[in-house]
Structure formats: C-alpha cells, structure tokens
C-alpha cells in the first residue's frame, strides 16, 4: 500500500496544474455559454454548451494519461522502479479518475443547473426520466467510455516507446502506431458486424426505455450519450470488460519488457 500511496501522491502533485487547467477550461466554457445565451437571448444555448462539456469529459482520462505519460517519458525516473507495471499504470489511472470525478461532478452540477434554469426544454430534449436521472445515466456511460479510451492510451503509449527498441521501426514509430490503430479499428468493425457477434450481443439485453430512461433528441446529429432507444447488452459488457483487461495487460507486458524512454 505504501508503494501505491507514494505513486498516487506523486501523480496528484505532478498533475495538479493539469487539473487546474481543466477547471479553468470548464469555467471558460460556462462563461462562453452564458455569453452566447445573453447575446442570442436563447436560454437553451447554455444547456447545450453544458451538455457538450459533460460529453467532452469522455476524452478527459485519455488526455490526462497522455499528458502524464509524456512527462514520465522525458526522464527514466518512473521506469526506474522495482514495482510491477500493473501498479505503475493503476496508480496513474486512479489519480486520473480522482481528478476526472472532481472535475466531472462539477460539470454535471453545472449541467443540472442549466437544465433547471433553461428555457423550453421540450424544444431541446424529450426527457422521459427527469433531467437528473438522464444525466446520471449519461455520466455512467461517459465514465466507462473515458476509462475504455484511457486504457487504450496506455497501450498505444507503451507500443510507441517499445518500437524505439526495434532498430528497423524506431524511425517509423508514428506510422506503426497509426497503422496498428487502423488495423484494430477495422478488425473491431468486422467482428461487430458478424452475425455471431450480433447474436451474442442480443443475449441478456436490458431495455432502458422500459424503465423510462430514454433520452430523445437531435436524431440527425446522433451525439454521443444520446440514443433513441437505450439498451444495455450484458454480453457486450462482458466482451468489452475482457477487451479492456486484455489491452491493459498488453500495455503492462510492453512496459515491463520493451519500453524505453
């Protein structure tokens, strides 16, 4: 526990300014929202801006981890450590999540306030479960999304720094990383369109709209977090959990055996 606490304390101290910058951007977003609302005399603009900020938190953890790992990549201090790569990465994820929640909760409070003080919400959203409940569901989705992307960042960072170790590829690290991403994305799309995967996905589906959780809005833009008929697939959840763990362990394997900074 002493090791983990030491890493967390280091991480929080190291990234404190990054967190403050995130808060400053949030405040800037609120000010822009207010400014546009006043300028166009349209109270729904603030709600839309607040929701955009909430959805934007899907990128919080990946951006945090990239920034933190970039600092670690400048010296060998982080890697000169006898503790396992799992502990090193988990400490980063944990500290990132602490900052994420502190900042994200504030954005949610702002969004809920915006909903309550917005104009004619029916023209913007068709809510069937109340704003707070819908925002909570959205927040859970965004949190899972940011964790998913964050773990991929650990993997791609490790891959990038592992390639330094291979003379032929060391000068082609960016193309290799982008190529790997394209390969995984194409493969993921192919698998998700297989009839077998569709069948698996339909096992143990919970239809959220049966509980009046459904959010309907802007059908044409199909923004993240907004769905026409929300449903949760248990098998999909299991597949994604296995995927996240596999990617995490692949990142740890690279960190232990191949990464050079």
């Amino acid at each position: 526990m002493k090791v983990f606490k030491g890493l967390i304390y280091k991480e929080l101290k190291l990234m404190k300014n990054w967190f403050m910058l995130g808060l400053a951007l949030l405040i800037l977003g609120v000010m822009i929202g207010f400014g546009l609302t006043k300028y166009f005399n349209e109270p729904n603009i603030f709600v839309a801006v607040a929701l955009l900020m909430v959805v934007g938190y899907g990128l919080y953890l990946p951006a945090y981890l990239l920034s933190s790992l970039n600092i670690e990549g400048q010296t060998q201090l982080w890697l000169h450590n006898p503790n396992s790569g799992i502990v090193l990465f988990l400490a980063k994820l944990t500290a990132g999540i602490v900052f994420y929640f502190a900042s994200f909760l504030l954005s949610i409070v702002i969004a809920i306030w915006g909903f309550k003080h917005g104009g004619n919400l029916e023209s913007l959203l068709q809510l069937t479960g109340g704003p707070a409940l819908n925002i909570v569901i959205m927040a859970v989705g965004i949190t899972l999304g940011t964790l998913f992307l964050g773990v991929w960042v650990l993997f791609y960072w490790s891959l990038f720094h592992s390639l330094k170790n291979i003379p032929v590829l060391s000068s082609l690290r960016w193309p290799v990383v982008i190529g790997t991403w394209l390969l995984f994305t194409t493969f993921g799309n192919y698998v998700s369109n297989l009839p077998l995967y569709q069948k698996l996905k339909n096992i143990g589906v919970i239809k959220l709209n049966a509980y009046s959780f459904e959010i309907k809005t802007w059908n044409t833009t199909a923004s993240a977090g907004f769905v026409e008929s929300a449903e949760l697939s248990m098998v999909n959840g299991i597949i994604y959990t296995v995927l996240v763990f596999s990617v995490f362990y692949a990142a740890v394997w690279l960190l232990e055996r191949k990464v050079e900074v």
Partner: peptide
C-alpha cells in the same frame, strides 16, 4: 513540482 523532501519521500515509498 516537487520539493527536496518530496523526492526523498517518493524514493522511500518505492
């Protein structure tokens, strides 16, 4: 961003 004692404490923890 560390002080001297923070570096010492970090090493002691690891």
């Amino acid at each position: 961003p560390f002080k001297v004692k923070d570096m010492i404490d970090f090493y002691a923890s690891q």
